Simulated scan of single mutants.
Amino acid sequence: MTDCGCEKAQKSLEEYLHNELCKEDAGDIREHIDSCPECSDEHRVGIVLREAVQRACKEAAPEDLRAQVMAKLRSIQAEHA
């Protein structure tokens, strides 16, 4: 594998984080991240953001808020029917 460089690593980081790269490209990115403090930091930020989004998607709105939103949507639909 060859060091891919910061530009390629940063451009491919999102796909790398989602395991969407071929084995060779993923290996090149991993090798670069391991040897480049700046890209390693970007990688860690990407992981933290991905995990935060995953947690947020698992959370549900409180039932009273859900009821209020649904009531408002029904009201708006009734006005336009």
Rank of each mutant, 00 (worst) to 15 (best):
L17F: 00
L13G: 02
I47Y: 10
D25W: 02
V48T: 10
E63M: 14
L21P: 00
S75Q: 14
K8T: 05
C22P: 07
D3L: 12
V48E: 14
E24H: 11
A71T: 11
Q10V: 05
D34P: 00
R30G: 10
V45Q: 09
A67L: 10
Q54W: 07
E31H: 09
Y16D: 00
I29E: 01
Q68T: 10
H43D: 08
S35H: 15
E14H: 07
R66W: 07
V48I: 14
Q10N: 08
C6R: 07
D28G: 07
K11G: 03
L65M: 02
K58V: 08
E59H: 06
P62R: 13
V45S: 05
G46Q: 11
A61H: 03
K72T: 14
A52E: 11
L49A: 14
Y16F: 06
L13M: 09
C36S: 01
H80S: 11
L17I: 03
V69F: 06
G27T: 05
E31R: 08
N19E: 05
L65K: 02
S35N: 15
C6L: 06
D64G: 13
D25S: 04
L65F: 04
K23W: 08
H43Q: 06
D25A: 04
K72V: 12
H32L: 00
A67N: 13
C4P: 00
V53Q: 10
H43C: 10
A52Y: 07
V53E: 10
R44E: 15
A67D: 13
P62T: 12
R44I: 13
T2I: 07
A71G: 09
L65W: 03
S12R: 07
G46M: 12
A61T: 03
K8S: 02
R50Q: 14
K23M: 10
C22Q: 04
Q54N: 13
K23G: 10
A60M: 08
K11T: 05
G46I: 09
K58D: 09
D25K: 05
E24C: 08
C6N: 08
R55S: 13
L65E: 03
A26L: 05
Y16S: 01
D28T: 04
D64V: 14
G27N: 06
E14T: 07
I29P: 01
H32P: 00
A67S: 14
M70Y: 11
L17H: 00
A60S: 10
H43L: 05
R55N: 14
V48W: 06
K72G: 15
L73V: 14
E24L: 12
R44F: 12
H18Q: 13
D28N: 05
R55V: 12
E7Q: 00
C36W: 00
G5K: 03
A67P: 06
C36N: 02
S12Y: 04
C57M: 12
P62S: 15
A26G: 06
C57A: 10
A78Q: 15
M1R: 09
D34L: 12
A81P: 11
A81C: 11
A67K: 15
I47N: 12
M70Q: 13
D28Y: 04
T2L: 06
A71F: 05
I76C: 09
H43W: 03
R66M: 08
C22T: 07
D41E: 09
S40A: 12
R50K: 15
A67G: 10
V45C: 04
A81K: 14
Q10H: 03
C4D: 00
P62C: 15
A81N: 14
Y16H: 02
S40G: 08
D25Y: 02
C36Q: 02
C6M: 06
L49C: 09
V69Y: 05
